[in-house]
Amino acid sequence: MYPTFVTRGLLQLRLITSTKPLNLQLHTGVSCFAAVKKTSAAGGVMGLGKGKKKGGKLTTMEKQQLPVETDPEKLVNYVCGSNIYTTGEDVKLKDDSEYPEWLWSLNTGAAPRIEDLDPNTKEYWLRVRAAGMRRNNKLRSMRKF
């Protein structure tokens, strides 16, 4: 038997010199078909969701009025809106002593600044990492190419 590169060379030579087209699959490492990139006017590849959408006429959506609880007795004693099912009632509030102590020490305001955090904590380094990623993403979006 011939070595594989000689066999491939002979088959390629036979394909070039043959008058009839041969339907042989050659494993030469070279693709036979080139992909054609079709782009839209918006700059994206066609069919990938970018660009102008074709559709019917746009209509205005009407605002949906959601019911708001106005009963002060119910607002004080229940967590309004906690029941997502069509049947049943909202969760009833308990006394403050029945809730854990850590619940009352949660920060409900703005997050502390990075400068105010201790560098020896995990929260500090998570915030530094997030700030670095935001900075890199901003710089990457400003590139011209």
Rank of each mutant, 00 (worst) to 15 (best):
P3K: 02
T4G: 08
V6G: 03
T7W: 06
T7K: 04
G9M: 05
L10G: 05
I16D: 05
T17N: 09
T17Y: 02
S18D: 04
T19R: 11
T19S: 11
T19A: 06
P21Y: 08
L22W: 02
L24C: 09
Q25F: 04
L26C: 05
S31L: 00
F33Y: 14
K37M: 07
A42C: 14
V45D: 10
L48V: 12
K53R: 13
G55W: 01
L58T: 13
T59F: 15
T60G: 10
K63L: 15
Q64F: 13
Q64N: 11
L66E: 14
L66F: 14
V68T: 14
E69L: 04
D71Q: 02
P72S: 00
E73V: 11
K74M: 11
L75E: 07
V76E: 15
S82L: 11
N83F: 01
N83E: 01
T86Q: 11
G88N: 02
E89H: 12
V91F: 11
L93C: 06
E98W: 02
P100D: 03
W102C: 08
W104Q: 01
L106Y: 03
A111Q: 04
P112A: 01
R113L: 15
L117D: 01
D118E: 02
T121G: 01
K122N: 07
Y124P: 08
R127G: 07
R134N: 11
R135T: 08
R135M: 09
K138L: 09
K138G: 07
L139V: 05
S141H: 05
S141E: 08
R143Y: 04
R143N: 09
K144H: 09
K144L: 12
K144V: 09
F145I: 15
F145M: 12
